[in-house]
Structures are given as C-alpha cells and as structure tokens.
C-alpha cells in the first residue's frame, strides 16, 4: 500500500492539480517535502511511493534528493539550524555567530546535538543579508526564518524546543 498516497491524498491531489494532467512529474518537489514531514528526511520507501504516484522511476526521484539541499536522505537533528554564513552575512559577523553557537551547544559545525534535537550547519545566502546574523530552522513541517539573532536568544529558542519535546 502506498502510505503517502493514502495519508495525504487531499494534499497530493491539490498539488497535482496545479500542473497539466500529463505533467504530474512537476509535483515531485512538493511530494518530497510531504515525505519529509514524517521523519525530517526522505526514506527509500518514500522514494518508491512518490515514484509510483507520479509514474517516475525511483531513480529519477532520488536524483532530486541529491541535487537540492533542502531534501535530506538521512536523519539529523529534529531541528536543523541553517546559519547563513555567506559573504554578506559573514561581513556582519555570521562566521563568529556560527562558531559561538556551536561552541555553546558543544558540537562541531555540521553536527547534531547528542539528544538528536538540533543540527547546526552553515548555508549559502538566504536573502536576509541586512538582518545578519540570521538562520532558518528546517523541520519536517517546513522552514522558518530567525533574523538579527544573538547566541543568547538562539539558546533560548532551543530551550523552548526542549520544553516542547518534554510535553
């Protein structure tokens, strides 16, 4: 049985309806996001299901996971903190911010905290260059920008996630 097709049939129908009937494949990017809702990454099983729904080969689907950076093929932190440390942000202290944040969390850039809650990585420009330091947080539910951040209020944000988890 196709789990994704069953669970999100309404969403999928709406997405596919955006495109001409013979161009179902256009829906693949949105379906990959749907697949990530469950675990925060795309499983091999998801790949096969999406391929089936859109009449693509699983290979064609997995190729997209490799090409686009917002798809993940393995489990990382539940919250992925993606700090922009591209040139404009770096000119406004993003590199230091990233380093200090990781130090505070006791991890290296690119790693995940021991509790599996948070991963931190540096990413390319997020179109918020005037609001550095900034980052986006990616979870299975989507992406959210956090701008003009300090290490302190970032740590507070992480604390609030921890509380949420405990509930």
């Amino acid at each position: 049985m196709n789990k994704i097709a069953e669970k999100y049939s309404g969403d999928i129908e709406k997405i596919i309806a955006k495109y001409p009937p013979e161009q179902k494949r256009s829906a693949v990017m949105s379906l990959l996001y749907i697949a990530q809702r469950e675990d925060g990454y795309v499983t091999k099983h998801d790949i096969n299901e999406i391929a089936e729904i859109l009449e693509m080969t699983p290979t064609e689907v997995v190729a997209l996971v490799g090409f686009y950076t917002l798809y993940h093929d393995k489990q990382d932190g539940k919250y992925r903190i993606q700090v922009c440390n591209d040139l404009p942000c770096a000119l406004r202290g993003a590199d230091e911010f990233l380093e200090n944040l990781c130090e505070n969390l006791g991890i290296q850039v690119g790693d995940t905290t021991e509790d599996g809650l948070v991963s931190v990585e540096g990413v390319m420009c997020l179109a918020a260059c005037d609001k550095a330091p900034m980052f986006q947080v990616q979870t299975g539910d989507g992406l959210k920008y956090h701008e003009e951040m300090t290490v302190e209020n970032t740590m507070e944000l992480i604390e609030s996630w921890k509380k949420e988890e405990k509930k």
Binding site: L87, P88, M124, C125, C129
Partner: peptide, 11 residues
C-alpha cells in the same frame, strides 16, 4: 528564486 548573495529585494 532570489538566491544571489546580497540580494533580498524580491522577498
């Protein structure tokens, strides 16, 4: 797609 580093107008 606004992704050029330093560009944030379209947003």
């Amino acid at each position: 797609d606004e992704s050029e580093p330093g560009t944030f107008k379209d947003r």
